[in-house]
Write a protein that binds this DNA or RNA. Structure first.
Length: 625
RNA sequence: GCGACCGUAGCUCAGUGGAUAGAGCGUCUGCCUCCGGAGCAGAAGGUCGAAGGUUCGAGUCCUUUCGGUCGCGCCA
């Protein structure tokens, strides 16, 4: 679009200066344009001359002046000026502005899709909560963020597989407790200590008709299926779906856990020697001390009890070794993770990147997960040949230099293949006070309740489906407005208000306004048609077109660093640019049909850009409000 | 102790190493005979937590430091 066109112009100007020997080859500085804060500095500015001045051994203003001369004849530019210490200020010609509008109209919402420079095949896992309760408002952020990130990555040209990991291991103590709570309600048994209370538990219990099988296992299977169905339904209402719902238990049933762990055993990443290594880490992960902890032998170990199986994760940057298999033979949660992360690379086939989106409480889990993937990688890599003894403290972690090098190479590879993205805490405010996600009566604040409360408060007269739509739009937008890596205050009172305080209505209003205007134009006899591309010269028109054309650029940036809140910010800025334009430029003017047609084209292009960004954000584009 | 995140307007937060740091809310003042006023224009409000450093240029990068939130299980 506009930026890429300008960069292309600049590149050819630079090439011509290099051809005539004014600039040396291979300066390496990126050619970029930025939008100056001050409109007097043009539509776009380029700092290339400043960047390369030192390397080229020339005065930056002199370089800028020569670049300006080389650009003078470009029809896309109305003016080129050298300013300040060596900026190049560019003004767009109306024809370039008009051509951008025509381009958007021709390509439709596909204008917001771009080819990736290095397309990746990515598995994105998000939400993945235990099936022992509904999706909470806390998980809502992960759901909104994860689903939007997937949309953005796809728009940026990557292949994305959306995945939900079901923590349904039959050995899970939390699931067992949940099942026992349901069972005691169904069968009228004494309630387990620390059991799950709350309406959602009795709701599950009420849906179960006893079969005669009174085992906890039977109840666990039934209640988790019901809970999972509820989660699926709530997420669907929130506009979130998955390509794969992956069952943890299936890994055990298929023998994949056993197989994966044997592989780790074989490549030296796991063993059953009775000790645990712990690292004392200083700043920047420097190993200050290594502690080898002898494993205590329990008096009451039953004869025949097995040995603890350890993942030697300290070889892969983790601060302590982790238990894979308990003495009693039960696998730990992390054991399933080993098999799971091996399996995940099949979705999409030959995936080259796993993205795992976790809440702030799982931050301590990154080192462990990375170690798991590194241990898996090691089995697939060539072992280095050289071998010599290591000095302390490394000698207490690795057998020799060959092993150390192999482990560190595997770790580096793992860090390339697995990326854990942590989103930060959400604090919910009601009446200016923090509203707890878990209530004292054992109930939790469910995402679906939030959606419906917002919908009801905003549109009391609307039907249930419409209220859900409104609640979903508002909630998603609130979650997505802020960077995922900063703490978020979610003002429940503000979300429930249907007023201009609420930014989601601001952006949707712009869309509804356009729809209404286009309808009016049709009545006045203006059909979608060709327009004169040179007529959009008002500063508000230029500003609006620039903003429309920025969407692919924002998608690119968001896909690069996962900062998808930019899309929400973008939508607000686009809506603002439209409202400014609308206020200052009357669109339908029967006495000026050519101008009217050009402005209608601009309105339609704005509509396309709004719809594309709403699609990424997972919110609706209402034609009336 | 270690780690992640945060510290920018009264509040909630944006901000690509660039020129005079922005928006929303809140406070004040205006704008519908006219395409949807859920809008627009304007005013007021700032030592970007602090100190060093890198650079032609730092809210942004590096080091240190002070505050705040959260996390560091043979739970999942």
């Amino acid at each position: 679009m506009i930026r890429s066109r300008l960069v292309a112009l600049l590149r050819s100007a630079i090439a011509s200066l290099q051809a005539e020997g004014f600039l040396p080859e291979g300066l390496g500085a990126p050619v970029e344009v930025s939008e100056p804060a001050n409109p007097e500095h043009g539509d776009f500015a380029c700092n290339y001359a400043l960047m390369v001045a030192k390397a080229a051994g020339k005065n930056p203003r002199e370089i800028a002046t020569r670049l300006a001369q080389a650009l003078e004849s470009a029809p896309e530019l109305a003016a080129v000026e050298v300013a300040g210490p060596g900026f190049l200020n560019l003004r767009l010609s109306p024809s370039l502005v008009g051509a951008a509008v025509a381009d958007v109209l021709e390509r439709g919402e596909d204008f917001a899709r771009l080819p990736a420079e290095q397309p990746k095949r990515m598995n994105v896992e998000f939400v993945s909560v235990n099936p022992n309760g509904p999706i909470t408002i806390g998980s809502g952020r992960g759901a909104a963020f994860g689903s939007t990130l997937c949309n953005v990555l796809e728009a940026a040209g990557h292949t994305v597989h959306r995945e939900y990991y079901i923590n349904d291991g039959v050995n899970s103590e939390q699931m067992r407790l949940f099942a026992e709570s349901v069972r005691s309600m169904c069968l009228g048994l004494p309630f387990p200590e620390k059991g799950y209370r709350g309406d959602y538990v009795s709701e599950v219990a009420s849906k179960i008709t006893p079969s005669g099988d009174e085992s906890v296992g039977w109840f666990q299977a039934r209640s988790q299926d019901l809970m999972l169905a509820k989660q699926r339904e709530d997420l669907a209402a929130f506009g979130v779906w998955f390509d794969t719902w992956f069952s943890e238990q299936s890994l055990h049933d298929d023998g994949k856990v056993e197989a994966a762990i044997q592989a780790l055993h074989a490549n030296g990443s796991a063993d059953d020697r009775p000790h645990r290594t712990k690292l004392k880490l200083g700043k920047k992960g420097v190993i200050e001390d290594v502690e080898i902890e002898a494993q205590p032998t329990d008096e009451d170990d039953a004869e025949g009890a097995g040995k603890t199986l350890w993942l030697r994760s300290t070889k892969y940057g983790d601060d302590q070794d982790r238990v894979l298999k308990r003495k009693d033979g039960r696998y730990t949660y992390i054991a399933s993770d080993v098999a799971y992360h091996d399996d995940k690379f099949n979705r999409p086939p030959n995936a080259d990147k796993l993205l795992t989106i976790l809440g702030p409480d799982h931050h301590g889990y990154i080192g462990r997960l990375t170690a798991v993937v590194a241990a898996l990688q090691r089995g697939k890599m060539e072992a280095p040949s050289s071998s010599f003894p290591l000095p302390d403290p490394e000698s207490r972690i690795y057998a020799d230099a060959a092993e150390r090098d192999a482990c560190q190479a595997a770790l580096a590879e793992a860090k390339e293949k697995l990326e854990v993205v942590i989103f930060q805490l959400v604090r919910f405010l009601k009446d200016g006070q923090p509203a707890p996600m878990r209530k004292r009566d054992g109930n939790i604040y469910a995402l679906i309740d939030l959606i419906q409360e917002i919908g009801k408060a905003a549109a009391p007269e609307a039907d249930a489906a419409e209220q859900t739509r409104i609640g979903r739009d508002v909630a998603r937008f609130f979650y997505l407005m802020r960077s995922h890596e900063t703490h978020l205050d979610f003002d429940l009172d503000l979300a429930a208000k249907q007023s201009d305080d609420n930014p989601v209505y601001y952006v949707q209003y712009a869309h509804a306004r356009i729809c209404s205007l286009l309808e009016k134009a049709r009545e006045a006899g203006f059909e979608a048609s060709e327009f004169d591309e040179s007529l959009l010269a008002d500063r508000r028109e230029t500003a609006l077109v620039k903003k429309i054309a920025d969407l692919p650029f924002e998608i690119q940036r968001s896909a690069d660093d996962y900062g998808v809140h930019r899309i929400a910010t973008y939508a607000v800025e686009l809506a603002r640019a439209y409202h400014h334009f609308y206020d200052g430029c009357r669109v339908i003017q029967p006495e000026s049909p050519d101008l009217s047609r050009a402005r209608l084209a601009l309105c339609r292009a704005t509509q396309v850009a709004l719809r594309a960004s709403f699609g990424l954000l997972g919110i609706s584009a209402p034609e009336r409000m």
